[in-house]
Computed example of a mutant assay.
Amino acid sequence: MRARAATRSTGRNRGWLWLAPAVLVAALLFGTAVGETRIPLATVIEVLAVKAGLGSAALDPIDASVIWHYRLSRAVVAACGGASLALSGLILQALLRNPLAEPYLLGISAGASTGAVTVAVAGIGAGLLSMSAGAFAGALTAFALVAALARAAGGGTGMRGAGVIILAGIAGSQMFNALTALIIAQSASAEQARGIMFWLLGNLSGVRWPDSWVAVPMAALALGVALWHARALDAFAFGAESAASLGIDLRRTQVLLIGTASLATAIMVSIAGAIGFVGLVVPHAMRILVGPRHARLVPATALAGAVFLVLSDVVSRIVIPGQVLPIGVITALVGAPAFAVVMIRGRQR
């Protein structure tokens, strides 16, 4: 009886996976159909059908350009970015055994922003480095600094260790944010400074199809690496000793997973700036819905992160008529209360 009950429970838990593609397609369609200007849903579907080679109707060039080159490309990149950031938060929370760990709070986003701005504005690398490479170098530097600072402060396990890591991340974030501001003040023109400061708050307005050639493979890579190491993430959630007792190569696994999380964050920062709280809110919400096992939690987190950022982008475009808000503002308005809830629940435990 227990075996049959367990089998039925597993089937129910995995049943939603069959709905995942439909949910993702619906979110992308919603992100394409809703925007600053009203376009009928029938027109949106007609344009998508013609662009996909499923029709030959005459299209209005303005509507076609808005739907295909602006809204759909933006929705695709938002979905990939949301999945990447959510998976980065999930990986960091498991490796560090810290429910508050995520790229934004640990300074990884701030370091990636500094690296990207250093390459784009200060001209470091003499044109040989891309913004993505600069962002990746900044993200790794920030994480190494936060880890070294937490170790020097004597961070251990439990709530004290979690607090030390978060405090180290806050210090690292402030330092890299200050470095970014210094670089902008020293090297950027007034027009550049305005554009960069808006970009740093999280901005998808300039996203087009070429950005998807980077965002889509990165999201697929992050999902693949996390799924491949789902068993290791389960073990790390109980501590490094538990992972080692199962025969997991700690150093190799940690380097690969942290490198993947840092690269995913860096790629998203180089495309759309720093978008906070996605990696904090989404993994915790999915743990409540599908449980702590990473074999289910990883795909659920990726899907929810993609949908969450697409919906946040839609809200950023329509919440104030005639004005587009930075998407980081919307995610922060949702993430800040969630951050408080996580802290309160941790203290109660």
Rank of each mutant, 00 (worst) to 15 (best):
V117W: 11
L96G: 01
T180Y: 12
G158K: 03
V207F: 09
Q186F: 09
R208I: 09
L204Y: 07
G127A: 07
A139P: 02
A168R: 03
A152Y: 05
A178I: 15
A94Y: 00
L96R: 00
G155W: 01
A144R: 04
N177R: 14
F136D: 11
M159G: 14
L145T: 11
A178W: 07
A185R: 10
A190E: 10
Q192K: 11
V119I: 14
A101W: 08
L129K: 07
A153K: 07
V119M: 04
G155Q: 03
I184T: 13
A188P: 07
A110F: 12
A185F: 12
A219E: 06
L95C: 06
R208H: 01
S132V: 15
M159A: 15
A171I: 14
G111V: 05
R151M: 05
T114K: 07
G125L: 09
I91F: 10
A126C: 04
V121Q: 11
S109E: 08
I184L: 14
G172T: 03
I124L: 13
M131K: 11
G158S: 06
A215M: 15
A168W: 03
A86D: 07
F136S: 08
A116N: 06
A220T: 12
D211I: 10
N98R: 01
G125D: 13
N177M: 14
L167P: 06
R194D: 12
G163K: 00
G134L: 03
G127C: 06
I165V: 13
G89K: 09
G115E: 03
G206V: 01
L201N: 10
A190M: 02
A150T: 01
T141H: 00
A152D: 00
L145V: 15
W213K: 09
A219V: 13
L204T: 04
S113R: 04
T141E: 01
L129P: 11
G111Q: 06
G169R: 01
L92T: 03
T180V: 12
